[in-house]
Computed example of a mutant assay.
Amino acid sequence: MRKQTILTGAAALVLAAFLAACSGPAVETTPTATLSPTPAAESTAPALESTSASEPPEWGEQVFTQTYTAGDGTQVMEVRYTLPMVQNTDAFPAGAVINDWYKADGASRMESAEANYEQAVADYDVSKSAGFSFSPVTEEMSYEVVLSTDQVISIRRTWYINSGAAYPTVFQLGENFDPQTGIKLTFTDFFTDAQTVQERVVDAFMAKADLAAGGFTREEIAGAYQQEQFCLTSDGYTFWLQGNSLNAVHSPVEVTLPYDSLKDVSMYAAQ
């Protein structure tokens, strides 16, 4: 761990990329697959009703990874993004569209990593000149399929970034897909009243003991709430506040609202 807070530029670029929309070149993709050239579009209102699907998806992974070094050969950054990949696209055709979406996402992240690499080299050079210790930036991403039915496929990703600061930065990302078409679903495909959902989600966060102990106001929690960041599980809708979105809260905080608690404003009928 760096003893001085010099390596801040690369981390700032990563955070900015998350808050905007990450973009980027695929350096290594494993395993390879034949995917369509453009990502699935985010649609409005695909049907969430139950229909007979093809065979269930079989999940593998596509990996985007690269190690970056300075001119003297010192490692300054390493990234490894492990993203979902449906292996049986012949039996589950929507999987090709899902694969394509994550292929585009991974390529976009590699492009962002390339930009961050330049900042990491600059930080290394400053540290070396000043005689400070240096730790390379490390980024890792993993995924979990948290729900897979004939109505929705819900995937949760964890993005871990260690830039040598006192605490690593961790993001939780969520994507929900229509299993009939592979189209990525949005908040409005599930809910009819965004304001009511936000109020109930904020209520749930306000009731958490760790946040209550921090003395956070309702306005602060509402400001950290991200409407599109949620996933579906067997227990209900899971929402989270990202690490560092609230003062001195370094890891994501999550709440799960049972499906019944939002059924009056939800278009999704839990099975």
Rank of each mutant, 00 (worst) to 15 (best):
A47G: 15
S23A: 13
E42D: 14
F187I: 02
L232F: 02
C22F: 08
S148D: 04
L83T: 11
D100L: 07
A130R: 01
N244I: 02
T181H: 09
S234N: 07
A91R: 13
S43R: 08
V137F: 15
N176A: 13
G73Q: 11
T89K: 12
A269C: 03
V197L: 07
N244Y: 07
G73N: 10
E114F: 10
T34I: 13
A53N: 05
D235P: 08
E55W: 00
A270I: 00
T188R: 00
M1F: 05
G164T: 00
Q119R: 15
G214R: 09
V126D: 02
Q119S: 12
Q198R: 14
T217V: 05
L19C: 02
V97N: 06
E220A: 14
T217N: 08
N116S: 08
T256Y: 05
E175R: 00
D260W: 00
I161D: 03
G215H: 02
A269S: 15
A41Q: 07
E144A: 14
A207T: 13
Q119F: 05
I183M: 12
N244V: 02
W240C: 10
G214N: 01
Q227R: 11
Y268R: 12
K184H: 08
T188M: 09
T65N: 10
Y102N: 00
Y68H: 02
V152W: 00
G174F: 11
T169D: 01
L83K: 03
P37R: 03
P56H: 03
A270T: 01
I161W: 00
N247K: 12
E111Y: 08
H250T: 15
T192R: 06
K128M: 05
G60C: 14
D203S: 09
A122E: 05
S112P: 02
